[in-house]
Design a protein around this nucleic acid. Sequence first.
DNA 1: AAGTGGTCTAGACCACTAT
DNA 2: TAGTGGTCTAGACCACTTC
Lengths: 243, 243
Amino acid sequence: MITRNPSLTDQVKEHIKERIASDGFEGGRIPPEVELANDLGVSRTTVRDALSRLEHEGTIYRRQGAGTFVREQGLQIKSRLEDIWSYEQVLEDHGYVPSVRVISEKEMVADPMTVEALGVGPEDTVLVIEKLFLEDEDPVIMTINRIPSRYLTDTEFTNDEATPIYEFIEQHCNRTLSYYLSEIVPVSLDADTAEALGVEPGTLAISFDEIGFDQNDTPIVRGTSYFRDDLIRFRLLRRRSGT
Amino acid sequence: MITRNPSLTDQVKEHIKERIASDGFEGGRIPPEVELANDLGVSRTTVRDALSRLEHEGTIYRRQGAGTFVREQGLQIKSRLEDIWSYEQVLEDHGYVPSVRVISEKEMVADPMTVEALGVGPEDTVLVIEKLFLEDEDPVIMTINRIPSRYLTDTEFTNDEATPIYEFIEQHCNRTLSYYLSEIVPVSLDADTAEALGVEPGTLAISFDEIGFDQNDTPIVRGTSYFRDDLIRFRLLRRRSGT
DNA sequence: AAGTGGTCTAGACCACTAT
DNA sequence: TAGTGGTCTAGACCACTTC
């Protein structure tokens, strides 16, 4: 299903990222845009697109009239909060090699918050999938996803519960997960969640309470995610205006 | 000091925003990019720049091959987490009319975390300003800002402590606050902070632990902010790829 | 004054959606 | 197949920084 070979812009972006990683820019100074464009054989616009994205991700910064520079190592932002799509990717960004474990998967009557969030009837059932994301047997993230049963086109999952939720929805709901509306909520972990994450009950954590929408803006999944605060932290680069 | 008349892109962006506000797009459908470009007498690139920013802010969304559409009212994101600059603005975005109260302002020896964050000596002093942001006498946000004494060019504040921290720094440090690096941390409020915010000690809250950098990437201020979770929530629009 | 990023244009072709 | 957004080019001029 996934087509698109990487766009030129993406290729340029990766090229620059790799060269940054291998310390290939003397004094942290990235060559002028025109020079990069000539060297790589693309237009300046393409180079600028790539640089803009890297700037947005916090990898580089630009000063009009002065130049473009690599951001200091310690300052690198690894997860742009708004670009998070799969938690596997979040863990990889933190330098981990992630694995996924399905804790449970069952159909049950929707709880009140899910009823309200997804607009299902109070008697309707939802498929509830609980998953754990681990790094080398160390649990880091727990997620609970709830999908209304009526959206399911089949119930032959054959271990698909372990695939990312957006792929699961494409395969079993015939819909595409388009975007999430998320709320950041501080929580004190209950006994079950704490046990799954391998910490003491009552431990402080960040959670995301999120609603996923399909391509027609229909709410299709409600997710709740809990993060081990001692293993993963969300960082944010805040700039003055909306670049 | 502030020059730059609005760029064409910004003007186009404002034009579209105003027309959205006055319900000027039938069926929430925004005209094709080429049509907008012709109508406004600018190039398609400029229109695309403006639309890209509006998309990033969550005001509109685009579907390749289909068109560009106004996002449903209920889904509009009011605070883009990464665009937060002043907390007054955050409160306004939540529909409040904010006021500010200075709790305390004193010079003292830097605590270890501030020493590490700002790279000052362990004996150096910092100016610590504690502020409270209120809505109609209801405290919503508490902030603690720490600025190394050696960056201060004068100590004649005359109530300037109540101005936004970035203005304070411009006026009394002769530097410009350029960006923040923030970490989102879940906390259980201690007695003092809880009292200031008017909640019970131990109440769960989100806090930002942030370092502010000047135009030369020198860390110049360390801030800690606490938010009343029952009065203010951070929302996030997460999309599939990094537009 | 020279160099660099910021803005803008005009036009081409591609990928996807609707019908 | 027609229409729309996505990508890319080549080139122009401006605003700001540096020397």
